[in-house]
């Protein structure tokens, strides 16, 4: 079975700070890392390959320096890594990226499963897996965990807002994997050395994929200003009887969507 795994390189969300004075994200402390959920997707792919054989191909869209993220995927165990890199793709939004990835999956050929992380932890809206599925004309399962293959039926678990489901879908399909039990493996030291020194990251551009500018460069949304979270006002005491104080606290928390 041939599995493609989509990998995004992001700024480490744990190290991103907020600059209140500039009302901007301060990325200076943040390294570029593989989007953590994508590593869970890759882990799921590697486990499927271990059980059923086949090939795992890591796929990413971005500038040349994104090849580092793909090298990490190679180090973890991916067989091939392909970077879609093109000036034209530089400004593409989720729609264009999904289109480019779908075209790449078709171009690779014979792919029966595409895995992605549940969402990109930077600014992602979690729409890529479904967009990609739409482009491919395949079904999608989002927020899935522990995928298993039984006679070309893929089974997994999904937890929605209310409960946990057991889902099954015939391949080919797109699956977005959550960060649950099956923790991504540590890339072995030997593979790290190989992946960063010797391994090849194939680079495809729009010509290779037959993508035209109109297909990918249309912008559907535009990022505007940031809204800073309200400054914390510490030491505020709620007064009244326990019942009154509790009620106003619950109201405050609901208002701030903390509960």
């Amino acid at each position: 079975m041939r599995i493609a795994v989509c990998i995004k390189q992001i700024l480490d969300p744990r190290a991103v700070r907020l600059s209140r004075s500039r009302e901007a994200i301060d990325p200076r402390q943040a390294a570029r890392i593989v989007n953590p959920p994508d590593r869970y997707a890759l882990e799921a792919a590697l486990r499927l390959r271990e059980r059923h054989g086949g090939e795992v191909i890591a796929l990413s869209v971005g500038a040349r320096d994104v090849s580092d993220a793909l090298r990490e995927a190679l180090a973890m165990g991916a067989d091939r890594a392909i970077l879609l890199s093109d000036e034209m793709l530089a400004g593409a939004d989720a729609s264009g990226v999904a289109r480019a990835l779908a075209r790449a999956v078709e171009h690779i050929g014979d792919v029966s499963l595409v895995l992605t992380g549940e969402r990109a932890l930077d600014t992602g809206g979690g729409t890529l897996p479904a967009r990609l599925a739409q482009e491919l004309g395949w079904p999608v399962v989002t927020d899935a965990s522990e995928p298993q293959l039984e006679d070309s039926i893929l089974r997994a678990f999904q937890r929605d807002e209310k409960q946990r489901w057991s889902v099954s879908v015939a391949l080919p399909a797109v699956l977005a994997v959550t960060r649950q039990r099956e923790k991504p493996r540590y890339p072995p030291a030997l593979r790290i050395a190989w992946a960063y020194r010797e391994a090849e990251v194939e680079t495809w551009d729009c010509d290779d994929l037959g993508l035209s500018p109109e297909e990918i460069s249309a912008r559907h949304t535009e990022e505007r200003n940031l809204v800073m979270p309200p400054e914390r006002n510490l030491g505020f005491i709620l007064s009244g009887s326990p019942e009154e104080a509790a009620r106003s606290l619950v109201a405050e928390l609901r208002g701030k969507r903390l509960i």
Binding site: R185, Y186, P187, P188, A189, L190, A193
Partner: peptide, 25 residues
Amino acid sequence: KLRQAGLLGVPFPQKYGGAGLGEMG
């Protein structure tokens, strides 16, 4: 776990089962 992550032979050349990451690694 150290073994699985290949951390018990980090400096040695790959032909001797190491990771080839030298003294720096």
